[in-house]
Design a protein around this nucleic acid. Sequence first.
DNA 1: TGACAAACTGCAAACGTTTGCGATATCCAC
DNA 2: GTGGATATCGCAAACGTTTGCAGTTTGTCA
Lengths: 337, 337
Amino acid sequence: MATIKEIAKKAGISYSSVSRALNNQTGVRPEIRKKVLEIAQELNYHPHSSAKALVQNRIGVLGVVIPRTSEFAFQNPYYSHMLLGLSSVANDMGYHLMLVINQQQSYASLYHSHLVDGIIVLANRIDDHYIPELVRDNVPAVVVPGYPDGWEFDIPSVNSENYQDVYRAITYLINLGHRDIAFILGGMNSNYSLVRLEAYKAAFRDKGLEYKDKYIKESDFSKTDAFRLMGDLLNLPDPPSAVISINDATTPGVLHQINSRGLRIPKDISVVAIGCSDLVDLTDPPLTTIKVPVTQVGRAAARFLIELIEKGECRERHVVIPSALVVRESTGVWPNR
Amino acid sequence: MATIKEIAKKAGISYSSVSRALNNQTGVRPEIRKKVLEIAQELNYHPHSSAKALVQNRIGVLGVVIPRTSEFAFQNPYYSHMLLGLSSVANDMGYHLMLVINQQQSYASLYHSHLVDGIIVLANRIDDHYIPELVRDNVPAVVVPGYPDGWEFDIPSVNSENYQDVYRAITYLINLGHRDIAFILGGMNSNYSLVRLEAYKAAFRDKGLEYKDKYIKESDFSKTDAFRLMGDLLNLPDPPSAVISINDATTPGVLHQINSRGLRIPKDISVVAIGCSDLVDLTDPPLTTIKVPVTQVGRAAARFLIELIEKGECRERHVVIPSALVVRESTGVWPNR
DNA sequence: TGACAAACTGCAAACGTTTGCGATATCCAC
DNA sequence: GTGGATATCGCAAACGTTTGCAGTTTGTCA
């Protein structure tokens, strides 16, 4: 493959001049530059990224770590939307994306071995072993979502309004008259679950009401588990009048359980779904949703990380992307007559 | 950051010995090796991948290109399953994955600039400009799925049994008594669409029957478009008695249209879904499916590419992964009484 | 003890770039 | 024509590895 030296030889100049010509640097005559570019084209020259990286100490790659171990988690459209956002910004800013799924290896080593310039950790869990290392070793890194307030260490993060959203949704349901509101959560090692459960409780408290533990169900983020738990809820002597489902993986399970019992939404039970999938408006009826702007979160995370890499610091360490409660037809007043 | 030279200095030996010790090569005394490894540990040493790549001419990265331009395409769980398969094999074989989504840039240049050792192109389209370049430049590359038989150039590929599957499904429906079988396709620049439409036609021909063009609908692979087209079909004076939906993106649109008209599956219409999503068994009724083993396709593609990279050649240039028609409850005999 | 092989070790080149620095050429004003 | 500023250019070092080769040590056996 063509190298800079070959171009230099062919053009009859030194290879430092070739380098300068190719990189749009000053100090090379226009006609020489033109000639160099022509020869480069002709030889199908491409700069050797490793050689470049070696001397510039920058490879132009962002590491994207998806630490989840279970297959179903990755099926969640969450990751597609996120990657889309990350990718669009990375492309625009001249970076590539290295995707690391569930590697049983320290994330920091990706950085230490100069494979990536920085790291984005997606859907981190509260008990993720490898994250403290990123902080300790000063690795440019952003986690999505961040840790709950008052966490033991501080690492840059991007969040959507996880807390506010659930708070708004519960308040909305309470205002509709609901009191027995079920919450299908994910595992409590998920930061999403933690923060959203806090919001759930707070919304009740702030209305002067009591929430009931029996309506709070901890799933493994799978549709089948959600199906099972929703079944348990509907088997209660006093089943909930509303349910909120934590993500796009659990929602189909919830809906399927409700439908299979012949219950009508929202007449018999109201449903609020949290997620980013557009499928919600294809359900019957269209779902009231906490629309999580995942692609935008991804875009923000990429921008954030690149700033961290290039400037070495960041203005704000915790970015929050606003989101919205979209009221459609799956929620209604209670009791319904 | 620690380099091999620092380790050498600290251990009081030459850095070539350090290199040999770290790489488990012969020609270094056991006690020296031990000492080197200890110091490496202590200094948190990680080899500089670019330096290594520069001399070894191998970076240990597979490029994964998703050329689709539309957002909805990427939402398809197809890609998640595929990445899962790719990632698992790559991890096992010591490779990383570079994800390139919809970059308006030659794929071959990724290879020429030594960013990747080889390339996997996902869901390639028949009119993809950048693929011929891979062939011309002899880039180690695998495309998923491959081109139809008799295509103008030959590039390694991995496929599931796209043709056979549809053929089996149509034959199955015909045997149930169906004659008016609709097919919601994707765009005809998709290799999936092309091959599957061929199979559709062949299945009819081989039964001595005629298919009707009006039942063949070309979507843009989105749920909304599928919803619209399914509406058109049901508005016909002689609507189809069965429909086959080409992927996980179109299926929800098809189902939603059917449900919104109050039609019963399979009493009023039979449905066969092609896809890899597990959501199909949560629908009501569970769907008869052509289960595409996408994760396995991904695994095969990664293995294939790695063989291509390491051996420089491959035994078979076109791998086919068997798949299955899973009969559930969305298909029934016709006419139904 | 000596000879020879085998194991070990270090030197230095090489991979393909970028870049600081000094040297040369060009240009302009006086 | 001279001085000085400025633009252009090439040399060589540097980035962190691997690796062929030559030199050194160690071990073995007669």
